[in-house]
Design a protein around this nucleic acid. Structure first.
Lengths: 102, 102
DNA sequence: ATAATAATTAAATAACTATTTAATTGTTTA
DNA sequence: TAAACAATTAAATAGTTATTTAATTATTAT
């Protein structure tokens, strides 16, 4: 089991968690939100998975990643509560990003 | 203000926080608990300070580092919850201090 | 079977972080 | 004032993590 602390220390990985808060997603969907390549995303997903923050579900040629809510929501909400890590603004940011693409 | 996420991602820095839960300490005292050299410790302390997790107090040729309790108590409690660190002494310390303020 | 798709792993490189040794600053003591 | 001390900053190196390109695996569709 890999370090949760290191897993959540990375900005991109926290953004992945935020995106997964809405719904389970495939790497293909997730990759559209980021600048980097699929292998980089894949590596981040593996780290989150090893830290037990997300789960993986294989379905045909797709894989679906979901929050392990028990663990990650607790962490995200905790940081929001204690240090004003602004989840709502990040959520908005993510939602606006999605709207612009349409 | 530097990232709290990155500040607490490092094992040594979390251990520094744990050591400071008992009492304020100088780099000289802290350095005995670790393998690395004073400059390395100094660098960790600066990162914790920039993340607003500890405060620095200059007194003659010594410097004392203390927990910024407001910020670090909760994260240390979180460690306890997840990994069973013993924080009772820190809790008492902070609670007594709060009472005195009133 | 073959081509196309989704995602991964492997190998190399780039970027970043931690640590060290050496030099420096400021303070106390003899 | 000079020596000793506490701690820092600076510069270099070591170590780690993130990212890329290329190759591979597995699945679906023609």
């Amino acid at each position: 089991m890999e370090s949760v602390w290191k897993a959540v220390a990375d900005d991109n990985r926290r953004e992945i968690l935020m995106l997964l808060r809405k719904k389970k997603m495939t790497p293909g969907e997730l990759t559209e939100h980021f600048q980097f390549t699929p292998p980089a995303l894949s590596s981040h997903l593996r780290i989150l998975k090893n830290a037990d923050l997300v789960t993986e579900e294989k379905l045909g040629k797709n894989r679906f990643y979901s929050l392990n809510e028990k663990k990650s929501l607790e962490i995200l909400n905790y940081f929001e509560k204690m240090w004003g890590y602004n989840l709502s603004s990040l959520k908005e940011f993510v939602e606006n990003k999605e709207k612009k693409k349409k």
